[in-house]
Structures are given as C-alpha cells and as structure tokens.
Nucleic acid binder design. Structure first.
Ligand SMILES: NC(=O)c1ccc[n+]([C@@H]2O[C@H](COP(=O)([O-])OP(=O)(O)OC[C@H]3O[C@@H](n4cnc5c(N)ncnc54)[C@H](O)[C@@H]3O)[C@@H](O)[C@H]2O)c1
Ligand SMILES: NC(=O)c1ccc[n+]([C@@H]2O[C@H](COP(=O)([O-])OP(=O)(O)OC[C@H]3O[C@@H](n4cnc5c(N)ncnc54)[C@H](O)[C@@H]3O)[C@@H](O)[C@H]2O)c1
Lengths: 224, 224
DNA sequence: CTCGTTTTGTTCTCGCGTTCACAAACTCCT
DNA sequence: AGGAGTTTGTGAACGCGAGAACAAAACGAG
C-alpha cells in the first residue's frame, strides 16, 4: 500500500495549484509573442508574483528549467497544462440560463482553456425555445442523460440561490463531482465532491471594507 | 503619532475580512426566518465554517455576544455591516457592457448588499443606443465626469483583456481606488489602489486539477 | 580546461491563519 | 442564593505558505 505513491500523484500545495493557471496564461502570452525562453524573473513579473515563489511552485512539478538559462516556454507550458489536466477538453454543463448563464454560455475563453460546454439546462420551459451560443437550452430533467452521454464531471450553477442546493443535489446524484457555484449560498455536498464558489457581492464587500479603512485613516491623518 | 490607533481602526486579518460577508449573508437569512438569537455553532453551520474560527473572527470586531446565550442576530448583523462599510450604498461604475457587463448590470443582488451601479460605460458607440437595467450605456470618455459627480471609488472592469490595463489606468487617473477585474490579465496599479480579480477559467482549471487527481488515484486503487 | 556569470532548485526562517481547549461569564432552575 | 449547564472569548500549539538566501548547475569567454 504505502510503499510509494506513483510519480503522477505527488501532492501539490493548494496555494500552488491556484497559481498554476496564472503561470499557464502568462506562458501562452509569451509563446504568442514568439518568446522561446524565459527566466523565473520574467515569468514571475508576467504572472504578478515573486520569483522565489514561482520557482518554488514550479519545483513541485519537477525540474523543468535549466540553470543559467531559464525555462523553455513551450515545454513548460505543456508541462503545466498536463499537470492541471487541461491537455484535453473537459465537458461542462451549465444550469440556469438567465443573465449570468447567457454570459457564461457565450464566453469563448472556456473553450481555449480546456473546457467544452456540452449542454445548457434551465427549469423554465419558456427558455427551451432558445438557442444560445449554438446550443439548445434544454430541460433540467435531461441532466442525467447528458452527464452519462458526455461523461461530464464538472457542473456550473447559475440559478437563483433558492434553487442552487437542489440543483447541486441532482448534479451529485447524476455523477458530477466538481461544482462551480455562482449562487450566494453555502452548498453542502458529500465527501469527494469539490465545490468552488464565485460570489461577486463578497468581492465588492471586501473592496468596500478596505475603501472604508482608507477613508478612516485619511481622516485620522488630516486631524493630526 | 503612534500613541494609540483610534478604536475604529484596529486591523482585521485579511482572511477574516473575506469571511465577514459570508457571516453577514447567513445572518440575513436567519433574520428573515425570524430567528432572534443564534449560537456560534448555528451561525458557523450556516456559514459553512468551524465554530472556533467564527468566534475568533467575530472577536476581532469586539465582544458582541453573550456567554451562555449566543449572538443577537439583528445586532450582530448591523455590527458586521458597519465594520465592512455597507451600511450605506457604495456607488459603482461598470466598464465594458458586453455579455458579462449586461449580466452584472442586471443583477439585483448588488443593490441589496450595499452597492449602487451609477453608470455603465462602453467604448463601442454602437452600444450607446442601449438602455440596460434602466441605465443608459454611456461613452467611456464620460468616466471622469461620472466619478467626480457621484464620488465613485469602486470600478468594475468587464472589457476584453487587451483593453483592461488601459481602462484600469483611466480609472485610477479619474480617482477610483478599488477595482474588480474580470479580464484574464494581471493589472498593474499604483500603491494604494486595491485590485481583486475574478477569473472563471482559473476556477474551472482548479476543479479540473482535482478532478484529474481523483481519476488518477481511483485508477491506482483499482490496480491494487 | 578554467574561471566568471547567470539562473535554477532548495533549505531555512518567519509570520499568518487554523484549531484545540478551557476559563470566564451568563442563564435557569431549585 | 447557589449550583448545574451553556456558550463565548482567547491563549497556546501547530501547520502551511511566503520570502530570503545560497549552493549547485549550466553556459560562455578566453
Ligand atoms: N447576474 C449577475 O451578474 C450575478 C452576479 C452575482 C451573482 N449572481 C448569481 O448568479 C445566479 C444567477 O443570476 P442571474 O442574474 O443569471 O439570475 P436569473 O434569474 O437571470 O437566471 C436564473 C435562471 O435559473 C433558472 N432556474 C431557476 N430555478 C432553476 C432550477 N431549479 N433548475 C434549473 N434552472 C433554474 C431560471 O429559469 C433562470 O433562467 C443567482 O444566484 C445570482 O445571485 C448573478
Ligand atoms: N462572458 C463571460 O462569461 C466571461 C467569463 C470569464 C471571463 N470573462 C472576461 O470578461 C471580460 C468581458 O467578457 P464579455 O464576454 O462580456 O466580452 P464582450 O466582448 O461581450 O464585451 C466586452 C465589452 O467591452 C467593450 N470594450 C472593449 N474595449 C473597451 C474599452 N477600451 N473601454 C470600454 N469598453 C470597451 C466592448 O465594446 C464590449 O461591449 C473579458 O475579459 C472576458 O475574458 C467573461
């Protein structure tokens, strides 16, 4: 059992995993600009991080650089893409084709970054007339069939908050094991299912907090 | 100078700041359900965190609970809202009224959470005919006037990546000091300006990484 | 071949955030 | 009033991640 884990399964710190996509993006920009090689300093600047942190992050993947030279842009790009798992496309379903769902369905960036939207689902029959980004909006009841047919493991929830937990439950029951949730609610899912949330109001509120502090401290300095 | 900082300006850890909006949301749900009082255990469950963490987080704000009883829902709700700075509305401008900009403009949740969209700006003159969510889409050149008129300090960027840095520069020059960026690019801004980014592709890629690992480890277990 | 230069990979230290555990404080019941 | 039961607020231990600093490796010049 615990003799040795296979070399594909060394575990990368979560903080590093979150930055790998940023490095990947920066490498694609460099590759498109025709750069063949880059130093950790250059890549770190492009990714907006400290170069020591970048090197440490990359060292978890393996030893893909050359001392005195730097990194081969194309080679490193492939290695990171492979590590993240975006060398092939992941099929994705989007549930809730309202304001946000439309925007997501129309977004071309997913395709170029390793994802393929295979279905758009909505509970409202009035939506089923629609075609968005070349895909029919289908009934939410088609979920199970679509998940099985396309072997979908990633689902996106863009429904109102009240519906989100139900949608998540149905997704999990259908076999989806990764969820990206836009509804402002804490989802509860069984062990083994990953949930990431994107809450735009929270982002704004964090900005508001710092903004308020700027105002307070500015006033305090004026008074002195 | 450094005798003592005023009691409004104690500094709250960044990790705590990011969770306060979640607690606030949970408290609003509890208040709407008619709950007058709650324990740290209940509130923590509603917010999806550990109760010890919740108590420690709240302790940075002050001592707003009652031992043996719990927290007064309405009171704590107000205190958190005050600490975050969302007891009054913050004016916000959105730049880039494409797919995503439309969704954001139409989102009613911002209003109820302390934000008021005061203007929608786009560089494309073809967009200026439009009215979205009751607001005219205006020229990007109106930015400076709007920022001054409404005293805007928070800007949202929903333009393509190539335009994002230019937009950010113009925003900063106009006096905006907090930016929420949806474009997949690292923005560089002067000291004193806060930037938060939301990158949906990165979120999906993080899910993909873990999904891939699940597949790998499952295969490894099968083989044993 | 050797030396100086460049840049990676890694070790070490420090600080932050999480979690445990418990004393202090409050309520309620007798 | 006093004791039993609850629940907060916080001190202390621990683990992870950030950054500095440096040794090892590659390269090029002479
Ligand atoms: N629009 C934004 O910019 C924005 C910003 C932040 C958060 N959000 C959140 O994202 C979610 C979607 O926002 P929106 O503005 O697109 O809302 P919306 O009302 O425009 O769209 C929601 C869609 O979900 C569908 N739906 C409802 N119940 C469903 C169910 N049980 N199964 C399947 N589909 C169902 C509806 O028919 C509708 O088409 C909400 O939770 C919202 O809070 C949106
Ligand atoms: N649509 C999505 O779901 C989605 C998802 C993830 C990321 N994003 C990112 O969000 C951004 C917007 O996406 P979108 O799908 O809405 O794109 P879009 O092309 O539909 O809209 C972009 C809008 O910005 C305007 N614009 C361009 N240059 C401008 C400038 N200099 N000043 C002001 N306005 C300008 C355009 O006229 C257009 O209306 C992109 O950076 C995209 O990568 C979008």
């Amino acid at each position: 059992m615990s003799a040795r884990t296979p070399d594909t399964a060394r575990d990368i710190p979560e903080a590093t995993v979150a930055r790998l996509p940023v490095y990947l993006r920066a490498l694609i920009v460099l590759a498109d600009a025709g750069t063949a090689t880059c130093s950790s300093e250059e890549l770190a600047a492009a990714a907006g991080v400290n170069s020591a942190k970048l090197r440490k992050d990359l060292s978890y993947l393996g030893s893909y650089g050359t001392r005195g030279v730097g990194y081969d842009v194309e080679y490193l790009r492939y290695q990171i893409a492979r590590e993240i798992g975006v060398t092939q496309d992941w099929p994705v379903v989007i549930v809730g084709i309202g304001n946000l769902g439309h925007a997501l369905a129309n977004y071309s960036g997913f395709r170029s970054r390793g994802f393929r939207v295979v279905a758009l689902l909505d509970a409202d029959p009035a939506r089923h007339e629609e075609v968005v980004a070349g895909l029919d909006v289908r009934s939410f009841d088609d979920l199970e069939g679509i998940v099985e047919e396309h072997d979908v493991s990633i689902g996106v929830i863009a429904t109102p908050a009240v519906a989100a937990q139900d949608v998540a439950d149905r997704m999990v029951a259908a076999g989806i094991t990764s969820v990206l949730n836009f509804a402002p609610i804490v989802l509860s899912v069984p062990e083994g299912v990953d949930v990431r949330k994107v809450d735009l109001s929270i982002e704004l509120q964090i900005l508001a907090y710092h903004e308020q502090r700027k105002a307070v401290t500015a006033r305090a300095e004026d008074a002195s």
